[in-house]
Nucleic acid binder design. Structure first.
Lengths: 198, 198, 198, 198
DNA sequence: AATGAATGAGCTTTCATTCAT
DNA sequence: AATGAATGAAAGCTCATTCAT
């Protein structure tokens, strides 16, 4: 009060919306969506619950807004992928870019991974599904042998689960990331070859 | 009243505990643990909420009891595995038996897969972790290259996720099961060879 | 606590549902439906809000249950009326019995009179409308002159409003009741004659 | 911004207060006072809630201002009536002018009719009561027989309720209006005669 | 083996209102 | 003449849990 304000209060001007999203995602990822109450989010931010409702219409909308902001890269990737030929090169590129997108929005994807039951009931469930179907259709050849289809799926699982699970394992994050991508790429490659040869 | 009544009412005598577990698991798997209320479970069974408390001390205990009953095979497998030599043959056998255990208790594992955030906060989180660590330690050689460690993990992911995700895909369930197991076995084999050769 | 319980606590056993309805109607009539909160009702009864929800699913259901219990006589009257010939005698009898029904459930009808906007939006609005339409169709001849139709309506208004407004006027309640009924009967008679003569 | 802009934006300059009143009355009449939120009013107008507070101190003040503007004719009528002799002619004239006033401000009176419980708790309740007492005292002879007092009241009810209820009935509005007035006049006349003869 | 009645804590959401700009 | 941001209070409702019977 008084003097040249420059501290936290000042910097927070106008970025409340963003701060809500940050805190919310942190808590959602940590405790799950249902176990995180708006009271908790508001308290962490030092505002009232009602303030959240100034910025977002519902609790779900907070999550949706986070989702929309953070999955834009995936959306773009899916669009791009839809226009590529179904070559092995394309598939590799998709995995590379997808793993990058996952990394960039790790907390969100960890949340989605660990709260699938919740996500399924919310609107983002459908959004994400449709967003992923594009990639799936490129990566997986419906004509291929079942084993190879599974291999392709497995590549995706590996990417998704890999990052979260490997957090417990010691080692350089960059190395782990590369290892995960390598395994996924291997799987896709085998699947692709299989489809060719059959 | 009195006499030799048979039929549904009669047959249900004494199996209420079991019926609670069945309905609870069904709902937990379908909607998630937090979104499933005891009221809902009781209503489906045609009893009152208080009746649930005659059989179980808390909501969590319902889940724990289901978990304990259904993961006993996994526990036994882990015990058995701990005494085996770390050969490729052993690893294959573990995957085979583990995938069988997953299949036998599919709804529970689907639940755990889709509610990781919840499970982590409950006591079954720790139980399961410790139960799985045995398998993990056999399957994954901590001395192996990172890529091969990832491959082994990937084998597990594939088993876990494979069954649920493949439900959408058309095809004979038995075939799908075999395909998933084959991919997992392949991954483990590669990982094992890698470890040998390095 | 201890000894031979006989007091209020004892008498209240099992009649909570009824007591909720009583208190609710009193408050609804006094302050209106929206301005009466469940907290207020619960406090007056010395129970918690949650107790109300044991007995009724929603706030509206409390009102609906009161309505259903108290308007049964009107329903029966409407049924009876539907099977009578459209004579002046019938009309007089309807007014007599209707005014009796209104008197028996005075607080409810006062509430409905003074909260029409609210009632219209709730389900009881439709219920009441349909329940009244029967009477209306008997009392009002659609072929009659407009003035006479208005006269019939006016008879109903008089009955409805009469009781509440006359509370401010001094005088024996019985006398007032008779006076209101007489005016209503007069109006109906004029309307009936008009219809005959035209 | 500067210049000679005309059109909607321009025409609305300065009449925001009026527009608030219009929209508010419309919503109050449609949904009731409590169920109409300031947010709703503001949204319909395309302004913020805070803008309402520039023009009115409270929600109630919006209603009061509407009331004051629209009931001025009734106030004047009451004043005029107070100075007239208590002849039948005067009474007829009052009904005629009152019914005209009701018609001119129909939405407001519909609102007051359908939200009596609310109105009673607000300041306009008292205002209106005192404003009406003048008319009442002229129309109703406290010395008259109870039946005739009721008849006079009935004349007022008829005027009040008639317009709203008759909206459902088919027919020329002008005709309906006349019919209502005729019935009211009839009632007052009978009441007046009764008083004379007793 | 189970019910009826109730509680306490908590939830998401809405509202009228304020105030610096 | 109006907005953007926020608040405090309260609302309706749900939940897991308890306990006497």
């Amino acid at each position: 009060m008084g003097g040249t304000m420059d501290g936290t209060k000042q910097r927070r001007r106008g970025d409340t919306r963003q701060r809500i999203q940050d805190v919310a995602l942190e808590l959602f990822a940590e405790q799950g969506y249902e176990k995180t109450s708006l009271r908790e989010i508001a308290e962490r931010l030092g505002v009232t619950k009602a303030a959240l409702y100034y910025h977002f219409k519902t609790k779900e909308e907070i999550l949706v807004s986070i989702f929309e902001d953070l999955t834009r890269p995936v959306e773009e990737l899916a669009e791009w992928a839809g226009q590529q030929p179904r070559t092995l090169e394309t598939k590799h590129e998709i995995l590379r870019r997808y793993s990058e997108a996952l990394r960039a929005a790790a907390p969100l994807f960890r949340f989605m991974q660990e709260n699938q039951a919740t996500v399924r009931e919310l609107s983002i469930g459908d959004m994400f599904k449709s967003r992923l179907l594009g990639l799936r259709d490129i990566l997986i050849d419906p004509e291929a042998e079942l084993v190879d289809q599974v291999r392709s799926l497995s590549a995706l699982f590996t990417l998704h689960a890999g990052m979260h699970v490997l957090q417990d394992v010691e080692g350089d994050p960059e190395d782990k990331h590369k290892a995960v991508l390598e395994v996924a790429t291997d799987l896709i490659t085998q699947a692709h070859r299989g489809a060719r040869d059959s």
